[in-house]
């Protein structure tokens, strides 16, 4: 960044989460947790919360939310925990894929590569 401070946002990350950087231990979110909004954004809401609710009208992964918000995943998890505690979003863990054997995946990969 040779023009520091010009293009980034003025708000620091700790102000977004009121200084919290880790979510609660029983936090249900990991990177691939699918998050679905349970309500619409309301006025006066923190803009990140509103953005998450808009974003998760359809199930969206935590990693994708973090990417869209341009926030580190840790911060995103804290925000999601807040929303989850308030009942505004719910988390859905993805179904385990039917095929988890790495050998099969490797074979598929090889096959695909040979296409």
């Amino acid at each position: 960044m040779n023009r520091p401070g010009r293009d980034d946002a003025p708000d620091r990350l700790y102000t977004i989460t009121q200084g919290r950087s880790r979510s609660s231990p029983d936090d249900p979110f990991d990177l691939v947790t699918l998050v679905v909004a349970e309500s619409d954004p309301v006025a006066g809401m923190q803009s990140e919360h509103a953005a998450i609710l808009k974003l998760t009208r359809f199930p969206t992964s935590v990693a994708e939310i973090a990417a869209e918000l341009r926030l580190p995943v840790g911060i995103t998890k804290v925000l999601l925990s807040d929303l989850s505690a308030a009942g505004r979003v719910s988390a859905r863990h993805p179904r385990r894929p039917a095929i988890t054997d790495p050998d099969i995946l490797e074979q598929v990969l090889v096959g695909l590569r040979n296409l």
């Binding site: 960044m1 401070g5 980034d8 620091r12 990350l13 950087s21 580190p72 911060i75």
Partner: peptide, 25 residues
């Protein structure tokens, strides 16, 4: 601050993130 922000993006570890936020502040 810009560096710290970049580092905050780069390090996923929550402990590191907490320390970085502290430094950031």
């Amino acid at each position: 601050l810009a560096d710290l922000r970049a580092m905050e993006d780069r390090h996923a570890d929550e402990d590191v993130l907490a320390d970085l936020l502290h430094l950031d502040h």
